[in-house]
Write a protein that binds this DNA or RNA. Structure first.
Lengths: 166, 166
DNA sequence: CAGCACGCGCAATAATATTTCGCTGCGGCG
DNA sequence: CGCCGCAGCGAAATATTATTGCGCGTGCTG
C-alpha cells in the first residue's frame, strides 16, 4: 500500500472528500490547514495516483423508484478460474447487479441487487441469474430496511492505527 | 416516489452526477443540453428535495490499508422492534461496520465490514460483535475479490421502464 | 384570447480554480 | 560546515466557473 507516503494532511483531505466530495477547494484547504494552491496540487496527486478513484452523487434510490434491494448468494458448479471470470463478466453486464464480490466459504459470490419492484427482480432472478450457465444455487435475502450505509472506509480507524505504530 | 415529477433532463443530471459527482456545472449543462444557470437551479432543487443526498469521493480502500472486507450475517435472539433498533444503533457506532441492512428470512442483519487486516477484524468480531447483547449467531464471509462495485442505481433500467409506460 | 406561472437563456457579477512566481526549510555533498 | 538542489508553501495574477437578475417565449387556465 502506498498509504505510508501519505502525511496527515493527505489523509485529512481524503477523509473530507469522502464525506463531502463537492466541497470547494478553498473550503477544503481551510479545513486541512493549508492554502488553496498546495491543497489542489495534493488533490490532483491523489487523483492521479488512483487513491481517489472518482466522485459520485449519492441518490435516494427509493425516491427514484428503486424500492427493492436484495442480497443474492450464488453458488457455482465449477470454481475454475475461467468459470469464475465468466460469471463475473456476466454480473458486470447486468444493470440490476450493483456489486459482485467473490467470497470464501460455501457461497461463491455475494451480489447486491437493486430493482424497481419485486416482480422485476423476480424476472431477473428466474430469467437471468438462475438460468445463467454454471450457476448451481442462489439464495436471496430482501432488505427490509437500511440502518447504515456509509461509503468508503473509516479514517478514524486508520488514524488510530497509525498513532499506535508511531 | 417523487420521481414522476422528474423530466428527462433531471434524470440525466442525476445519472451524470452519479457517474461523476465533481463535474463542473458548465460541463453538466452541456451534457444535458441546457445552459448553465437553469442546470444549476435544477441541481439545487434536486439537492434540496433530498433526491441527491450527498457527494462522496471514492477511495481505494486496499491502497489505503484496508485489506479486509467481510460480510457478516447476524441473527438476534429477540426481534422485538426495540431490540432491532438497539442493535442498529450499535452498528452505527462501530466504524468498521460500513453498512447494516435488516433482512427477511433466517438471518436478521447483513453487515458489510472493512478492516485493516484479519486480526483487527477478528478482534472486532470476538470482542464487539459476538459479545453484543441479543446477538445469537454471526456467520462471516471474507471477500476474496471484487468484480463489480457500482454506486447507486441503474438509470438505464429507470429509463427503459418509463419508456414502456409512456 | 388575455393573463399568469414557469422555465429558459443571456448578460453581468461574484466566487472559485488554476497558474505563475518567489520564498523557505531541509537533506546531500563538496 | 557551508553550499546547492529539491520539495512544498503562500501570495498574486489570471482563467474558469458559479450565481444572480432580468426579459422572453410557451403552455395552462379562466
Amino acid at each position: 500500500m502506498v498509504a505510508t507516503r501519505l502525511d496527515p494532511i493527505d489523509r485529512k483531505i481524503l477523509s473530507e472528500l469522502q464525506a463531502d466530495g463537492r466541497m470547494t477547494n478553498v473550503e477544503l484547504a481551510k479545513r486541512v490547514g493549508i492554502s488553496a494552491p498546495p491543497c489542489l496540487r495534493r488533490v490532483r496527486t491523489l487523483e492521479e495516483s488512483g487513491l481517489i478513484k472518482g466522485y459520485h452523487a449519492e441518490v435516494d434510490s427509493r425516491e427514484l423508484g428503486f424500492e427493492v434491494q436484495v442480497f443474492a448468494m450464488v453458488g457455482l458448479d465449477s470454481q475454475a478460474e475461467a468459470e469464475l471470470s465468466r460469471f463475473e463478466e456476466r454480473c458486470r453486464s447486468w444493470p440490476l447487479v450493483r456489486e459482485c464480490h467473490m467470497l470464501n466459504g460455501e457461497v461463491d459470490f455475494m451480489l447486491k441487487c437493486v430493482a424497481p419492484d419485486l416482480s422485476s427482480f423476480q424476472s431477473f432472478l428466474t430469467e437471468e441469474l438462475l438460468t445463467a450457465p454454471n450457476v448451481s444455487s442462489v439464495k436471496t435475502s430482501l432488505v427490509i430496511r437500511c440502518a447504515k450505509d456509509d461509503p468508503g472506509v473509516p479514517f478514524e480507524v486508520l488514524e488510530e492505527r497509525l498513532s499506535r505504530s508511531a
